[in-house]
């Protein structure tokens, strides 16, 4: 089964502690107005380190079965 992963930030739950920003191995996050957001021109590799250490469950990797990605896989063969 092909799945697609996506980084999701729930700003309403973010308290701006900066833990995810500090422990992101790619430096792909930043704080703006005490809320976390994706830093521009950086790459997120969807490792999930932010999700493991976020005390407020405000950032996570969403994994879902993606029809489009599956079709792409079929087309490539």
């Amino acid at each position: 089964m092909t799945t697609s992963k996506k980084l999701i930030i729930n700003s309403a739950w973010c308290k701006g502690c900066g833990i995810c920003v500090a422990f992101c191995p790619k430096g792909a996050l930043e704080l703006k107005d005490e809320k976390v957001q994706r830093k521009e021109d950086t790459e997120c590799v969807l490792c999930g380190m932010c999700e493991l250490r976020c005390p407020d469950y405000a950032i996570y990797i969403e994994e879902k079965d993606d029809e489009e990605a599956r079709n792409q896989w079929v087309m490539s063969y």
Binding site: W13, C54, P55
Partner: peptide, 30 residues
């Protein structure tokens, strides 16, 4: 907007929790 784990095992109507910004308790509860 919450992960499957949080949706499955926590009470979303009580979240976000009252712990301070950066409190380790949230990490341990997860």
């Amino acid at each position: 907007q919450m992960s499957n784990l949080v949706y499955k095992y926590m009470r979303p109507e009580h979240l976000p929790h009252i712990w301070c910004p950066g409190c380790g308790n949230g990490i341990i509860m997860r």
